[in-house]
Amino acid sequence: MALLNDEIRGQVRELLDAMPDVVRLVFFKLPEDQCEYCGVIEELITELAETSARVVVETHQLDADKDVAESYGIDRAPALAIVGAKDYGLRFFGLPANYEFSTLIHGIQAAGHGAPGQLEESTLSYLASLNAPVHYQVFVTPTCPYCPGAAVLAYDMAVASDWVRAEVVEASEFPEIADRYSVMGVPLNVINETGRVEGRAPQQMIVETIKSVLA
């Protein structure tokens, strides 16, 4: 059975057909017996590619295609790299279901337009002044209505600056990673390992956190 019904396909098509650049969804999977949702994710992105010609899918086995994974900085699966005219550093780890489906679509749009959604002037000018790498992780769960707001901010900032890499991680699918970062509540923003902001934070607060970890 299709994951996306006609109504959703219609909405998605309208959004994705408007993108000037084609977006490549580079999917890294594990063998089926090691990955509960890999099949679902593959089906989902295949349906997205069917829905709009502006989306294409490329699938790799994480183990077999280690070099490719490494070139995208991906060390675990299931993982998606969302790549537009260039690789803006947008990643999604896990199944982008429920509320997180909106996050995925927003990420694709941002990459396909090569432009962030709604960033404030002050945020944009700060991002333009960056000169060091920013690893911006957002931990989410699919049932959290506050999470997409946090996740899309990361994606927007990554599209706005080549220094920012935005990884959205479905925390319940990656318990070791969630443990490593002590994720006990979502959304959780982690910037360069040490900067930690709980909840859906205003842009200014994220910018201040980036400043403080880079200082």
Binding site: T141, T143, P145, A178, V183, M184, G185, E198
Partner: peptide, 18 residues
Amino acid sequence: FYGRGLSYCATCDGPLFR
């Protein structure tokens, strides 16, 4: 401890306490 084990949204954070 908000976000460090303390939560007001079981629907959001419940999956993390498996």
